[in-house]
Design a protein around this nucleic acid. Structure first.
Lengths: 364, 364
DNA sequence: TCAAGATGATAATACGTATTATCATCTTGA
DNA sequence: TCAAGATGATAATACGTATTATCATCTTGA
């Protein structure tokens, strides 16, 4: 049941408006019209200075209106203006990861900064869609009473995006853009993503140059597109370089033990937040990083961890992705169909944990 | 001259709506009314579930309307709602510091997280007012075409808040709350601030206990309320403990030299981002921290800096401030006039840079 | 002098929602 | 049977602006 208070049980504005602040009637175009002896329509026309529709206003009339405006300090009510305009210049930002209790939100901050920066530049406002209910640790986009349609459209943030949501967005014709590449969903999905395959491949190639003969990808390699993309780049580059490769499903001790036993000399971490776990494990096994084992981080950590090593890897251009996501979104609103799927290059970071492959065959 | 495109020159939606996404007309109450065979008025009444005005809706009619709403995913247009109602369940967030090129924004992230967390909990959305024009490195709240009134009111973030803005907010009756204590501005200003005086005083008292006889406050001590508050707490506590004290206007070498020459053995930094500058200066003078000189950070750095010391000081409860700011705001909307000015305690951090006063009198 | 065009302004309407006054119908009780 | 009250829904209107269709008046040229 959708009632006035449904979902907003705590949001109960007073009947009469805030008590602290006093009421004050706004000056409207009607007032200006009365003061200068013209109609409201004339006031609006003077304000908007439209010459295209064949409308003309005599110079002295215009001046009278402008004088009245100056005297009263009139400012058009943005609300009414938007209502008549159809677009409200508000861009929704939907983040799947809730703020509470997740610590994952720090990862998304740079994206938001990029969005804000571009919004600032282009003169629009961002609506953080925090009212979406949280279910199983993720926000639901189309729950009852969804406010996704408040804005002109929305930007999607999140490690993983619900396919049903995407399909519904496409079906309903709600303009949107995803931050992060997404597979098609009943049509191409506009996105601004990071080029994980290229960045991962570059690091694999570097490892090959350094003599590594057997390397491992640590992580799921499926699920979110960003995982699949990394693994794809990893496999292609390893095959191309003629390096033996495998996948370790998680950064767990026994899995890593097995990999090392098979002769792996470099691990590529899908999730850089696993670096501490891996280095701790290596220390426990008496393995030197990078002397015995090279460690490469494929991106930035999505959970807050403290890493004291200068890890080799790459950086996701999060801020720039945010910026361009807004560009793509406004392009969509403007009717553009080109260049609505973008992959941005990641920046490689040399770091100190990718070293030449160890020369000795075995460590006990 | 106020023209239609003023301030939004880059935001130019196509005449016909987005091309990729079919031209999707917004679902309105008229549509719902047609679908369920009632009038628009009835739809509105069902949505708002008003029982007070003596209006009644039959259960089955109500259900038909609710069904249609669910099927279509209808959401009330916030703009129209606000025009008619004056409320749209959107809370504005105005930050004085722009995103670009400032690095200062990281400081505000925890506040925003707190706001988001509480918005999530209470079921409302946050509008980041990024459309405000930037002038002299600060956003202007009431520039021409200001969109501050799009929301039900706003939360103010920023190191320093423009007094004229505050007065206008009060005068125009726009509900708002400041994150950070503010002096009165034509009336009491609702705020949720940090108790800088108490936290600063506690650290001063601790220094006194450790034998420091002469201490210095480093910073402006005026301007933003947060500076003035720190200095006030500093002076009061120093006087109470019978410790000699002075103020060094900036963390500049010669100023610090003079202070040390006068026998100062502990410095309290208004701006913790100055810690690296002070420690670098101390190292250059051969002063050991904290052996020769204790260093106390009064809060969290407002600029991104890397600090490798475990600095003694206190932490601003930023997230909790954000949370409570939203509570206060909603209280105001609800007509509360009590408890709209709150000071939250800061958490002291022991750290390792406040040590007993040096016993020797001089270092050359 | 008069028709055609130019000039200047307005009435009417739309945008989407909320609310009040009103109306039509049904129920109830004596 | 009928008046009074209860029930259920709507028409009308407001919020403040933008825009189009229309109208009245003036100017111009032959």
């Amino acid at each position: 049941m959708i009632t006035r208070t449904c979902g907003y049980t705590h949001y109960m504005p007073a009947e009469k408006g805030p008590a602290v602040t006093g009421p004050r009637r706004r000056v409207t175009q009607r007032d200006i019209a009365r003061l200068s002896g013209v109609s409201q329509a004339t006031v609006s026309l003077v304000l908007n200075n439209r010459l295209d529709g064949g409308v003309r206003i005599a110079a002295d009339t215009r001046q009278r209106v402008l004088d009245a405006i100056r005297e009263t300090g009139y400012v058009a009510d943005p609300i009414a203006r938007r209502l008549a305009d159809h677009y409200n210049r508000i861009i929704g930002v939907f983040t799947y990861e809730p703020v509470f209790p997740s610590g994952a939100r720090d990862f998304f901050h740079p994206f938001l900064l990029g969005l804000e920066e571009q919004a600032e530049r282009l003169g629009c406002d961002l609506l953080l869609l925090t009212s979406a209910p949280v279910d199983g640790g993720r926000r639901r986009m189309f729950a009852e009473g969804s406010r996704i349609r408040l804005a002109d459209g929305c930007v999607l943030l999140g490690q993983e995006v619900d396919r049903g949501d995407l399909e519904r967005l496409v079906a309903e014709g709600i303009p949107f853009v995803s931050v992060g590449r997404r597979d098609d969903a009943g049509g191409p999905v506009p996105y601004v993503g990071a080029d994980y395959p290229a960045a991962t491949a570059a690091l694999v190639a570097r490892a090959a140059e350094l003599g590594h003969q057997k390397i491992a990808y640590v992580g799921r390699g499926e699920g979110p597109e960003s995982y699949a993309d990394r693994l794809r780049g990893f496999r292609a580059a390893a095959a191309k370089a003629g390096v033996a490769y495998g996948r370790v499903p998680a950064a767990a001790g026994e899995k890593l033990d097995a990999a090392v036993a098979e002769g792996v000399t470099a691990v590529f971490l899908e999730e850089p937040a696993d670096v501490p776990a891996v280095t701790a494990w290596a220390a426990g096994r008496g393995l030197d990083v990078p002397g015995d084992l090279s460690v490469v981080a494929l991106g930035d950590p999505t959970r807050p961890v403290s890493i004291d090593l200068d890890v080799t890897g790459f950086t996701i251009p999060r801020r720039e992705m945010g910026r361009q996501a807004l560009d793509v979104f406004l392009g969509l609103l403007g009717g553009t169909e080109e260049d609505v799927q973008r992959l941005l290059p990641c920046e490689l970071h040399d770091g100190a944990t990718l070293a030449p492959a160890p020369t000795g065959r075995n460590h006990s």
